[in-house]
């Protein structure tokens, strides 16, 4: 069966043979290729779907916010790449659609209130649950855990400043509120994936998807 893992492993074996790598380096190359291929396929999938629907900027706002925080704070994972592709893409596209739909209802005060509430929620959950690691690569060193927690909190503060500035400086632009809402959606989605309720929900969706996807 052609899977991302098998493709990456075969390619890494080929590179290892051609370049005389030892087993350790071949395994690192396999891991790197799996990440690169996974990101490329998913990125292309998301771009194609959002282009088709006409919400590329909104989906990119969701993607950049959630990816930036996720890199530092970690979060729940699906058990296979296929389920990750379906669930992750659906979440991003849906967040983009919702942000575009509710943006006409927003005004400056409501936006600022929403940003502040989101930032406070973010700080609380990051302080409590970040970094949320997984069984594939647990973070066991306490120094590293503290470092990732600090970096995640720093990200939340910087994100709040940037998003508040954008809301105030570009409020005349028709697409500002919808893009900011998309970023807030991506941020909250990532925060939710840190906490136990997020693990339970994604876990049950992952199990449900397992009936139709490998």
């Amino acid at each position: 069966m052609v899977t991302l893992r098998n493709t990456a492993a075969e390619f890494a074996q080929y590179l290892g043979r051609e370049l005389n790598f030892d087993q350790k380096d071949t395994e690192t190359v396999r891991y790197g290729i799996e990440i690169i291929l996974g990101a490329l396929v998913k990125g292309l999938f998301i771009i194609v779907i959002s282009y088709w629907i006409g919400i590329i900027p909104h989906v990119l706002a969701v993607l950049t916010t959630s990816s930036g925080l996720r890199l530092l704070s970690g979060g729940v994972h699906c058990s296979t790449y296929g389920r990750c592709l379906v669930l992750g893409s659906s979440m991003m596209v849906l967040t983009g659609i919702v942000s575009l739909t509710i943006s006409p209802l927003m005004n400056k005060k409501l936006m600022l209130l929403l940003i502040m509430l989101t930032a406070l929620t973010g700080l609380y959950f990051v302080k409590k649950y970040a970094p949320a690691d997984n069984c594939s690569k647990p973070i066991t060193k306490e120094v590293k855990r503290k470092q990732y927690k600090k970096l995640s909190m720093f990200f939340v503060i910087i994100w709040t400043i940037v998003i508040t500035f954008i809301t105030l400086a570009y409020r005349q632009s028709p697409s500002t509120y919808s893009l900011v809402l998309a970023s807030i959606g991506g941020f909250l989605g990532q925060i939710f994936s840190l906490c136990p309720a997020g693990y339970r929900l994604i876990g049950s969706i992952d199990n449900g998807l397992g009936k139709i996807l490998p």
Binding site: G38, A132, D133
Partner: peptide, 12 residues
Amino acid sequence: KPASLFILYQPE
């Protein structure tokens, strides 16, 4: 890192 960049799947 704690998680892969934007994929909800973590390779081994």
